[in-house]
Computed example of a mutant assay.
Amino acid sequence: MDGLFKVLDIAASGMTAERFRLDVISQNLANSDTTRTEEGGPYRRKTVIFQEALNESANGSKNFGGVKVSSIVEDTSPFRLVYDPNHPDADAEGYVSYPNVNVLREMVDMMSAQRAYEMNAAVVNSAKSMYNSALGIGR
């Protein structure tokens, strides 16, 4: 029975991580035209880095415990330059630096995160079904 709960914990960690990834993707999309931030300059695209989550057992060994967000990193690719001399953030040559957010890439990442979330939800549902079947055997 302990293994079943471990499966649920691992799938839940994946769902939590993918939900966080979706939040960051949404932030990127919302700021895809932000040319001025508090830090100065245009918004920089952010990506989420995952890493395995390890659980320590009673005997001191480490076991896989799912996934967790290890960090959020800014994409260092160059900004998009658009000629618009009337824009308030235009440089001396009339170019405006726009965020390095590619909406198409963000949509693909969003679909990927959504599918990963759905797969983890399917694992949770399968585990619940197996748990209910096991309870039915004991009746």
Rank of each mutant, 00 (worst) to 15 (best):
S32G: 08
I25R: 00
E74Y: 12
S70R: 13
D109R: 02
L81F: 11
P99A: 13
L81S: 07
I49M: 11
K128E: 09
N28Q: 01
E38P: 08
N59V: 12
D33S: 14
A122H: 13
D33F: 03
F50T: 03
S77A: 12
P42K: 01
A30W: 07
M119A: 15
N59R: 12
K68E: 12
E39V: 06
L54Y: 13
V124N: 00
T35W: 10
A121Y: 09
Y43N: 09
P85V: 06
E93N: 14
E52T: 05
M107Y: 09
V82C: 10
Q114L: 12
A116C: 02
T47V: 12
E93D: 15
T34I: 05
I25T: 07
S57E: 15
A113L: 00
L29G: 07
T76Y: 04
S71N: 15
P78Q: 01
S26A: 15
N59Y: 09
Y117C: 09
V124Q: 13
F50E: 07
G66K: 00
R80V: 08
V67A: 04
E52K: 12
S26T: 12
N100P: 07
Y98Q: 02
E93I: 07
E52N: 13
T47W: 01
N120H: 08
A53M: 10
D91G: 03
M110R: 00
S71E: 11
S97C: 06
P85K: 05
T37P: 02
N102F: 06
F79K: 02
M111E: 11
F64R: 01
S61C: 03
Y83G: 13
A58F: 13
S126H: 11
A30T: 04
G65D: 09
G65Y: 08
Q27E: 14
E52S: 15
L104S: 09
E74A: 11
D89T: 07
N86E: 15
S126T: 05
D84L: 07
N120I: 02
N100G: 07
Y95I: 01
M119D: 11
A92L: 05
S77M: 05
A116N: 11
F79D: 13
A113M: 03
T37H: 10
A53L: 15
D109I: 05
S126Q: 10
G94Q: 04
Y83S: 08
N86R: 12
Y117M: 07
S126W: 00
V101S: 01
V103D: 03
G60H: 12
T37Q: 06
M110Q: 05
P99W: 03
Q27D: 14
I25M: 05
Q27N: 15
V24F: 01
Y117V: 04
T47Q: 02
V24M: 05
D33N: 15
V48S: 02
A127G: 09
G60C: 04
G41E: 00
M119L: 14
D75F: 02
Q114V: 00
V48T: 09
Y117D: 03
S57L: 15
T76V: 10
K62A: 10
D91Q: 04
A113V: 00
S61M: 13
R44M: 11
K62Y: 13
